[in-house]
Design a protein around this nucleic acid. Structure first.
Lengths: 240, 240
DNA sequence: ATAAACGATGACAATTTTGTGACAAGAAGA
DNA sequence: TCTTCTTGTCACAAAATTGTCATCGTTTAT
């Protein structure tokens, strides 16, 4: 559960404060006060999360984030941007460059910690190529096939590429509710500009497929939140 | 539980003394010896509490407090005034400017610490994604599910989005009374324009759900104050 | 005791959210 | 090129949620 966090911040007072906070919270902390130094550090140790100030002496935090995202080794490390600016366009370009979250100065250490926790918790393990078997469904990422077991018989479903990825993701993270935006980011990709409602349509298509084998209950709607792949029944509240 | 405290005090000896004490008590400390310096610091970091000397070289502590109160980001940070004067009218104008408490010099570190603790205790903690289990209820923010244990059986409740957030908040801050306005701010959001009474209705809906599993006693009314989620039984008012 | 304040409750209409079929643009393949 | 599939968006239908109100029951104060 302990994670290593790399703090890139050139104002030493702030750097120190953050470091203290993080250490108290049980994280391992690395500090750098420039992009160059940060680069060197991440050559040796790959942190679990990077806390990155927007303004750095040698390179803008934005550029640095882009660099990190560009390299295979570092591209999946979550980044939290620390920025003094509050303009909307900055938010967008910060997130666009791959920041997972951002915190504007002045920030409260308490809030920062909460966000760090949130990002780390959100960190979902990479999807592997393992065969997934959940709720009578069997999905094989290698052969791209989905089979359903109904009454002892195995039936293959013809799933389109997108539905396959969607189902794959949902099965890999079953029981957990995913917002439409999360699904777009994880299944379609981080940078797509697609309507949230599109997810609904694909969920619909997925359900249609699962209907053929009587498994449509596996994909559940959580009103106001998102969707969930779940083996447990969705409980009807007893009526009054 | 650890909090960040900004100490604004121009007498270095005192500043140091305070800082030492606070650090010993496990707080994170930032120091400034002028309003100007304090302002710079609060551009970067929002402390959980500000310890503010009445007399500063550049600006009176009073004015500084007013400034803090005037800005959206800082207006909710509790302030403890440190003053050498003991006149009643100073107390009043100090509190008027938004100080939550004040301590007169000379003070005992023990007293200062006690007051700091008291002020910080009022602070409402953040909500996290942890599973909450209270009074036979189990709420899981990740799966968006609420289960109740009745007679050894687990029953899932179908909770709507708002009731879910409300229940989440109440459970996260159990045993504490929340006014309707506080609930609106924390559950609905800060800037909504919704009637206070609406909270009643949602409390009612929540209770209705909990009734199904015989847990309606968990949500209690505190007349004239607000509502409370409590495991302890509501006391029968013993008359005097 | 009576009035005033406060909270509980049921009803309801407006709004929000989700389901669903259709469609056109594009991709892939023959 | 001509099909065939896939996919993102839209419009509308269906369903659930939610804020407000009117009313009623309780407690508190005068």
């Amino acid at each position: 559960m302990t994670a290593t966090i790399l703090v890139v911040e050139d104002e030493l007072a702030i750097q120190e404060l953050i470091a203290l906070n993080l250490k108290k919270a049980g994280y391992l902390v690395l500090c750098a006060d420039s992009a160059e130094q940060a680069r060197k550090m991440s050559n040796n140790v790959l942190p679990d999360l990077i806390l990155l100030d927007w303004m750095l002496p040698d390179l803008s935090g934005l550029e640095f984030a882009r660099k990190l995202r560009g390299e295979e080794r570092t591209k999946n490390i979550p980044i939290i941007m620390l920025t003094a600016r509050t303009q909307e366009h900055d938010k967008i370009s910060g997130l666009d460059a791959g920041a997972d979250d951002y915190v504007t100065k002045p920030f409260s250490p308490r809030e920062l910690l909460a966000r760090i926790k949130a990002v780390l918790r959100r960190r979902i393990p990479e999807i592997s190529d393992d065969i997934l078997e959940v709720g009578g469904l069997r999905l094989d990422p290698v052969t791209y096939r989905v089979h359903a077991e109904t009454a002892g018989k195995l039936i293959e479903l013809s799933v389109g590429p997108t539905e396959f990825r969607l189902l794959h993701f949902l099965m890999a993270h079953k029981e957990r509710v995913h917002t439409r935006t999360q699904l777009l980011n994880r299944v379609w990709g981080d940078h797509v500009f697609i309507e949230d409602r599109t997810v609904d349509v694909h969920i619909r298509r997925l359900r249609k497929l699962l209907e053929q084998v009587g498994k449509e209950h596996l994909v559940q709607t959580v009103r106001g939140a998102g969707y969930r792949f779940s083996v447990e029944k969705q409980e009807e509240s007893a009526e009054l």
